[in-house]
Nucleic acid binder design. Structure first.
Lengths: 184, 184
DNA sequence: AGCGACATGTAAGCGGTTACATGATTCT
DNA sequence: AGAATCATGTAACCGCTTACATGTCGCT
């Protein structure tokens, strides 16, 4: 149940439409929680039904009406409760590890190719994270007091991603060598 | 689409019932791909409809009939193709990172508690992985030639898990200190 | 004239979980 | 007597994705 709470989190910044929310998700949370437009609209409907957000129609010239959601007092309470409650450890679900698990069916070269393909993809992902980190660092000075704390939290999450992918790169390098020497 | 292929993978060892499959999933793949009984039965129905597996009813004394599935030639082809095709890099979906992302709403102590709770859970998970590794190492000598290669692949996947969780532990330790010193 | 941004949503389907249902056998 | 194991499945639901649908405005 993280998407609704992510939405509530963003709505503490300022009231937003579904469209706005899709954008902020893509700009910041995207690295560890992607959300589709459809999904966001559905989640907003549910949040509204539960009284955690309230909608307001705003007429605009030359554009469709803007349906702006703001978080309610009940929503703030729900968010705070959720934020402070540790989630249970998720089961990682890695399809490519199934490929490795049954890799004895493949030739060593095929296994190595699987691993190097992943290596390439991870390097690209690390590049994206680097860019995101640079972007925060760049406009961080321009932020007000409260924004500093917010930027710090953001940086911590990006740092998690960097740590995660770097350690996987190291593992891949080690494993590629190990697999290449595997007896047929 | 990893569950059906996981099932196909196990059926290359020997014909199995849905019940058997649930057991082997829990014993080995569980650390990075859990499967529920219901889901396995559904997947088997689909695989049968697609002609990738074939079922055979076996009468048993005092037990319900055993519906044993074996992989077909078409299924073997499908499995090999899938095994050799690199999957695209999945988006990690980590709800607890959303909690950190909006952690500026919390007090530093609450943030530290979130992180330490996760630390504890991860240490437990590492313990399970250690046990699994020991279990393979123990009965590895008793395996035939082909089994050696299979055990190696298995060990590589467990090694991934160990690497992953150890690096996360290190990150958590670093971050717990960082968060404790965060300006309010 | 054509494309992309703005803005809202619906419909269908997939992968997966939780809870329910049944019934014999074996172990404690 | 009661619990666990063997063995099979169904029903309802949830979270999420993909594709579809509609229409205006501003830029090139």
């Amino acid at each position: 149940m993280s998407l609704p709470h992510g939405i509530l989190g963003f709505l503490t910044y300022e009231p937003m439409s579904g469209y706005d929310l899709k954008k902020v998700f893509d700009e910041s949370l995207q690295h560890f929680w992607s959300a589709t437009q459809s999904h966001i609209y559905k989640a907003l409907d549910q949040l509204e039904a539960d009284g955690l957000v309230a909608a307001q129609l705003i007429a605009q010239e030359g554009k469709p009406d803007r349906k702006e959601y703001r978080i309610t007092a009940k929503g703030r309470r729900e968010l705070k409760d959720w934020l402070a409650t540790p989630l249970s450890l998720e089961t990682i679900r890695l399809g490519w590890l199934i490929q490795i698990f049954f890799g004895h069916e493949l030739a060593n070269e095929d296994l190595v190719e699987l691993l190097t393909a992943r290596r390439t993809a991870i390097e690209a992902r690390l590049g994206e994270l680097d860019q995101a980190q640079a972007a925060i660092a760049a406009h961080r000075d321009a932020l007000p007091e409260g924004g500093q704390r917010q930027a710090a939290a953001w940086q911590i999450t990006l740092d998690y991603g960097v740590n995660h992918y770097r350690s996987e790169l190291a593992w891949l390098d080690k494993t590629i060598h190990r697999v290449a020497d595997l007896p047929g």
